[in-house]
């Protein structure tokens, strides 16, 4: 089974209608179904609720007994402090996530094209070796990675902070981007079209530029969302390879929330500020994202 389309999942196959012929059972079942759906939704949203109400309370009004209650008086002081502490790193995270997403998507598209439609001897083995790179625990490369990047910095002084993370996220993003594009091209680009191009004498790069790339937009949407999110949310590389002055927002958020800060409003607001970009991406592009997950994993 290869579900490699990048179309929104709910358009791939229309959802079957309910049990039309049995209206009475339908009602009871539907009632139960919606009750469960709403209960689960409340549970899932609970941490978000805590974040929101706490972040909007003025520091003086936050007391232990009232933590679960709605704010009586709305204050934006927590948000202001969180924004003040996080905004420089938000900007750095944005650069990081955009650059890493674009670079690894381009490489993934080229690789995916070759692995799907321009194979070379042993390309399947190479592809499987690439895939393993998707699953490795980064702990297994972290120690020499630190040293290698440090050596590299000696003659590339700019390779610090965000550029360093862009490099790392681009490289470790190659496997998943390659997989997504390979599966996408394998279904979206018929072999016949490529054969026709070959007969016309088109070389590999011309074939890519004139046939493959123009139909790649859905694949790019998926890899860009995926890579943007994982680069934005990463903490491990940030912790090992950057510092508070040149690191991304996850690093600075962890410091803002460090054990001694008693200002819960700013901590909770900080969590929301640091999560908003990816949340927006999910809410706006969520359907595309689900299909991205599919093409990346269901084989």
């Amino acid at each position: 089974m290869s579900t490699a389309t990048a179309a929104p999942v709910d358009q791939a196959v229309p959802a079957p209608a309910g049990d039309g012929g049995r209206p009475r059972r339908f009602t009871v079942r539907a009632g139960l179904r919606y009750t469960l759906l709403i209960i689960f939704a409340i549970i899932v949203l609970m941490p978000l609720y805590v974040l929101l109400v706490t972040s909007l309370k003025p520091a003086s009004a936050i007391s232990a007994d009232q933590a679960w209650r709605l704010p009586v008086e709305i204050s934006t002081a927590g948000w202001a402090e969180a924004w003040g502490r996080l905004s420089p790193s938000l900007y750095r995270s944005l650069i990081l996530a955009v650059c890493a997403a674009v670079l690894s998507s381009i490489l993934g598209s080229l690789n995916g094209f070759v692995f799907a439609r321009w194979k070379f001897p042993g390309s399947n083995v190479v592809f499987t070796l690439f895939l393993f790179g998707m699953f490795i625990p980064y702990q297994a490369v972290m120690i020499p990675l630190q040293g290698m990047l440090l050596d590299a910095q000696a003659f590339l002084p700019w390779l610090d902070g965000i550029p360093r993370l862009i490099l790392v996220h681009t490289v470790y993003g190659i496997p998943i981007c390659t997989l997504i594009f390979r599966n996408y091209y394998a279904t979206a680009v018929p072999v016949e079209i490529l054969e026709a191009a070959k007969v016309d004498g088109a070389g590999m790069l011309r074939t890519y530029a004139s046939i493959i790339f123009p139909v790649s937009i859905p694949g790019f949407v998926v890899t860009l969302i995926w890579q943007f999110t994982s680069a934005w949310n990463d903490f491990l590389f940030a912790l090992f390879l950057t510092n508070a002055q040149n690191g991304p927002v996850t690093y600075v958020l962890n410091e803002l929330a460090g054990g001694q800060n008693p200002n819960y409003a700013s901590i909770m607001a900080g969590v929301l500020v640091a999560s908003l970009p990816t949340l927006i991406v999910y809410v706006v592009l969520g359907r595309w994202f689900i299909s991205g997950l599919m093409s990346g994993s269901v084989k």
Binding site: L37, V50, N233, F235, V271, S275, V283
Partner: peptide, 23 residues
């Protein structure tokens, strides 16, 4: 359906480090 799906999926958009603060 879209609303429920978004609600159930949204925690995935949040980084572990941010979620860890609340939890």
């Amino acid at each position: 359906e879209g609303i429920f799906r978004s609600i159930y999926l949204f925690p995935m958009a949040v980084s572990f480090i941010a979620a860890g603060v609340v939890w």
